[in-house]
Design a protein around this nucleic acid. Structure first.
Lengths: 186, 186
DNA sequence: GTCTATATAGGGATAGAC
DNA sequence: GTCTATCCCTATATAGAC
């Protein structure tokens, strides 16, 4: 299997874990989604489901960094401009709130213990990225961090409500209001 | 089994579902937690796991109504006073953020489809309760609803972060700041 | 690298004794 | 109302042919 074929497989795997959760995902579902037999999956992911979940989480975090964090690092742009691009990245990454966040999905049950460290680290990374941007925009450190924490809380919460209400409107509004509100001085 | 004994069993069942999710919860776990054999569980919950999850969700929603909504209905108190008691109820109900919200936990995979209607209804009920309180406090309808939506988003998000960061601090801060911020005029 | 076949365990669920 | 015993199914995982 070529590297790009594997990347495609991982994309399908991510979609399954997002929808069914770690425990709700079976090798049969993964086999169907990837088009590979169960045994073929073990060839690529020796530890089976655990390895696939790890690969899914890693790929998701890389993708998140590219789509959401990279804009925040464009030092030639103003913080507001960066936040605007970042917000667009968020909409794309979460498909306007229709996709669940693996950090939330994997934080429950057996997966929560398996991936405890990367889940905690990636949550902190999100907070730090936004906090640093706020500081660059001249917001005092303590307030910057406070705001970053609230933003990450809002993103996770909006994704939960998108799922229960079957509506993208709250997530879309959050993203729309994000750039203006995050950097406002009060 | 007496009614209070069954209530105790349901409490244990709730704890298991909260920790392991719907799919991650097995009859063995439920048997161990309740102290009842698998077959005894079927005597009380004929449809097995699905019935137990339904009972857990129903009990949780009743308990939430008692601890969180009831304070909001005390018309003799000011909205601020009610919100203060409500906030204390939230802390108790979620054990300072250490307990997950079943609405989030059950919104994934098979349970998400099984309980789609009650999950959506209870999320809307939360929004409506807070929205009505804001209106009573003189906040215009549209803004009131907007704020209520953001509050429910914050609660769900803070619970997610409490789980991934293994820290109660963000949830506790949210609850602490809640009464003052929810009704503030800007 | 993918397949078929299979091993083994655990899942949910039921029947019937007590 | 609780138990033991049992059934069937699906789950994960492995061995080995191609």
């Amino acid at each position: 299997m070529s590297i790009t074929t594997k990347e495609k497989a991982v994309k399908q795997i991510i979609a399954v874990f997002r929808e069914y959760g770690y425990e709700g995902t079976s090798l049969s579902l993964l086999s169907k989604a990837t088009g590979l037999g169960r045994s073929s999956l073990y060839h690529h992911f020796p530890k089976g489901k655990e390895d696939m979940a790890a690969a899914a989480l890693e790929a998701v975090l890389v993708s998140f960094d590219t789509m959401v964090f990279t804009p925040l690092r464009q030092k030639k742009q103003t913080p507001f401009q960066r936040l605007n691009t970042c917000a667009k990245g968020l909409s794309l990454f979460y498909a306007n709130g229709e996709r669940s966040c693996l950090i939330n999905i994997f934080s429950v049950g057996a997966a929560g213990k398996l991936f405890q460290v990367p889940l905690e680290e990636s949550t902190l990374a999100m907070i730090n990225m936004f906090s640093n941007l706020a500081k660059e925009a001249g917001i005092p450190g303590k307030i910057a961090r406070h705001r970053a924490e609230e933003l990450v809380i809002s993103i996770q919460g909006a994704l939960v409500l998108s799922r229960t209400l079957h509506s993208k409107s709250l997530f879309n509004r959050l993203v729309k209001e994000l750039p203006g509100r995050f950097l406002e001085v009060d």
